[in-house]
Design a protein around this nucleic acid. Structure first.
Lengths: 203, 203
DNA sequence: ACATTAAACTGCACTCAGTGCAAACATTAA
DNA sequence: TTAATGTTTGCACTGAGTGCAGTTTAATGT
């Protein structure tokens, strides 16, 4: 369930301060996600989250800078780990294929129930949806930076910029197509492959 | 200045009710934009906007459903008019070229001062930025629908879906490149053409 | 073991966006 | 003029987010 949110790995050695902080953060995220899924996003107030997590409402804001952040933080960390993998890629591979394969592998790390739950959550609130889409732009920028690290020729930069945009877009479209698909046997991965194939078709 | 916001055209015949409503809406938009540009977006409260527009704070919400909406409404209407032009396009033209040319023409209808002012405004507030990026997704969807109206073969739909995404993305990247460009002689249009050319390069 | 320092937690009072409701008001059509 | 309908308003409320000042708690030096 909250595998995607289990991102607060403990370093080799840490003091009580660090440990407590990490634990509290984790607890807030878990509690909040549970409440969001049962009571809905807008139906869950920060007061309740704070209470359930055993902290004061004011303290919440020293862990997350806003309510949206509770959810976005997890997605962001997950994305960062994918970019870490990208940096290990050989520059001999065509960048579009490298990204496509990484995305498929990333998607397959999560169960569909997880993804649908988070996805429905995003759809349930206007402001959360807006933030999520704002995050796409941020991911696109980070992806572009990572691409430039691997394929370093300056003359490729404009193409890499567009590639970053198309990759995020393809992922977005694939997820949407999968969500709206009536066929439960089709995997998310297959939708991603379809989307990437479209890039090469005649426009 | 507010050319982009002058979207409340009066129909041939209208009663007092319609006219007043249109005028009030227009007045709110003008007043708000002026205040945003001088005091900043976050620095302008709805109380002040309402006061300056000569209405009560409560009434504001019967004209715009949120503070963001004041700005987004104008952009949305502008986009809708571009889609209207797209529907008149011949299906013999390659869709990617049709969109590219329409976008260039659309951009050239606005002065760069206008665009930069609105752009900076968007950048100045977190939530406004998020909504703007949310709007991109909406525009993409509307563009896709319009494309399907013109190029009706069902087998082209997946490609058109990707094309809609790439077009909005190209526009976004072009505007960003232009904003960050040090060369004041380069036009927005030239950045758009560059972006569209990248679609055909080897990825 | 004790005192010092710095980080983290808390309550309180505040601002601002946004909503529901019911009363007052204006426009339209009969 | 009257009845129906649409618009404006004030009021009281919720909920997110912030600034501040005081307290608690962990880390560090002696």
């Amino acid at each position: 369930m909250s595998e995607i949110h289990t991102l607060f790995v403990s370093p080799a050695s840490e003091g009580v301060r660090e440990r407590k902080r990490r634990e509290t953060r984790q607890r807030i995220a878990e509690v909040a996600l549970r409440l969001f899924l049962t009571q809905g996003y807008d139906g869950t107030t920060l007061d309740v989250i704070a209470e359930e997590a055993g902290i004061s409402r004011r303290t919440f804001f020293s862990y997350f800078k806003s309510k949206d952040d509770i959810i976005l933080f997890g997605v962001e960390a997950d994305w960062a780990s994918m970019l870490g993998d990208l940096l290990k890629t050989s520059p001999d591979i065509a960048p579009i294929n490298a990204i496509r394969d990484l995305m498929v592998r990333r998607i397959e790390r999560h169960t569909t129930e997880q993804m649908q739950a988070i996805d429905n959550l995003m759809l349930s609130s206007e402001s959360l949806l807006a933030r999520k889409q704002s995050l796409y732009i941020k991911q696109e920028q980070l992806l572009f930076n990572a691409l430039c690290e691997v394929w370093r020729q300056p003359e490729r930069r404009p193409a890499l910029r567009m590639l970053a945009m198309m990759s995020i877009g393809a992922m977005r479209i694939a997820l949407q197509a999968w969500r709206e698909s009536s066929d439960p046997n089709k995997t998310v991965s297959s939708f991603i492959l379809d989307a990437f194939n479209c890039v090469r078709t005649e426009l």
